[in-house]
Design a protein around this nucleic acid. Structure first.
Lengths: 201, 201
DNA sequence: ATTGCGTGACCGACCAGCCGGTCATACATT
DNA sequence: AATGTATGACCGGCTGGTCGGTCACGCAAT
């Protein structure tokens, strides 16, 4: 055993700092030196925990995605009606993303990178892609339950699943541009209401 | 008199090339040298028409945004019912964005940049912000017309406007990840159907 | 028609500075 | 002393932007 363990809190601190810096300056422009300073460690130390800037970026992606997937899994395991689950799902994920705030700005870059990778035909599916696939499955399941329970009309599950996820993304993107929280809350209520009305039998 | 005019087709060619290169490599990584090569001109010539990489990027933004706004204005000037206008609006803009393809990948970076600028509190509103403000006004107007014409239920206009725009963004983003055009078409039909159903009286 | 000249569009080698990543050194713990 | 961790000065590769030179072209004079 080594006399001193690598500080297990440092990776988290580095990720936190990296989220801050990347959100402010962009992933490409964000400097490792700034991340180190933000985390109150030396630049070299960053490389004790991560091999490259790229790896830090991926760690951020993992954190963000798995937060969303975990929260959704937890929610859908609860004893609620499909309709309640779906409503809560949309509100919850929108709010998760709000709270991440800085992380949200990085999401756009994750998206751009993933889209580019897919366009290039990179066989390796991206983290983002995998995460969304999981979310799609979960949502799709709830929609099916809802139809069986006769809470929802019959529908093209794939289409409505896309609609629900698009809803979240779209709202968050809109919010990023306006940053008007009050208007946003009203819009969210109306949006969820409209969407649920569209799924009624 | 100058013996030779600057070629008025070059700026367009440069922008086209830049869209291609930026979409492939990202705005930050995309090299001016590559843009020049793609446009079949010398690197120096690029700087005859644009002062900086930044300026090229902004020119792209302008092109993309004004395409969307122009098309929407044209559509809404047509002799159609509000409901037809709204349906067509959503389908049309989604398709505009498809056709831009490469430009779409750059949109994510525009978004990221705008969001960062707004977060920093840059007084100067971004091009993207202005463009979306125009779209919001247009859509909002059609919704109001629809309520007056008793085609739509009463609603929170702001909320539904956000929903409609979020719909477009969200669908496009989802599509960028899947690139399955057939599934996408089905999803789009279902999405528009659901949304319109949600607005029924 | 031919010649020669002035203009500025075009070019790409070059440079400056930036930043990811390395490594020699210092330090802490046992 | 030995081992492992922390550090930041340094290195090298990279690229946005510059700038002096080139030459295609139009025009004027013959």
């Amino acid at each position: 055993m080594s006399p001193l363990q690598k500080d297990p809190t440092k990776p988290e601190a580095i990720i936190r700092a990296a989220i801050h810096v990347f959100a402010r300056d962009g992933v490409e422009r964000g400097k490792i030196a700034d991340i180190a300073k933000e985390a109150n460690i030396g630049k070299g130390t960053v490389y004790e925990y991560f091999n490259s800037k790229e790896q830090i970026f991926h760690a951020i992606v993992d954190t963000v995605i798995s937060d969303m997937v975990d929260a959704t899994q937890k929610l859908f395991a609860m004893d609620l009606s499909p309709k309640e689950k779906l409503q809560t799902f949309m509100r919850m994920n929108t709010e998760i993303i709000f709270e991440m705030d800085d992380a949200m700005l990085i999401m756009t870059e994750i998206w751009a990178q993933s889209a580019r990778a897919i366009k290039r035909g990179d066989a390796a599916k991206t983290d983002l892609y995998d995460g969304f696939e999981k979310l799609r499955m979960l949502v799709s399941g709830v929609l099916k339950d809802g139809v069986i329970a006769e809470e929802f009309r019959d529908m093209n599950f794939d289409g409505v699943t896309t609609l629900c996820l698009a809803f979240i993304d779209g709202f968050v993107y809109q919010y990023m541009l306006t940053k008007d929280e009050e208007a946003f809350e009203r819009a969210l209520v109306e949006g969820i209401h409209s969407l649920m009305k569209g799924l009624e039998r």
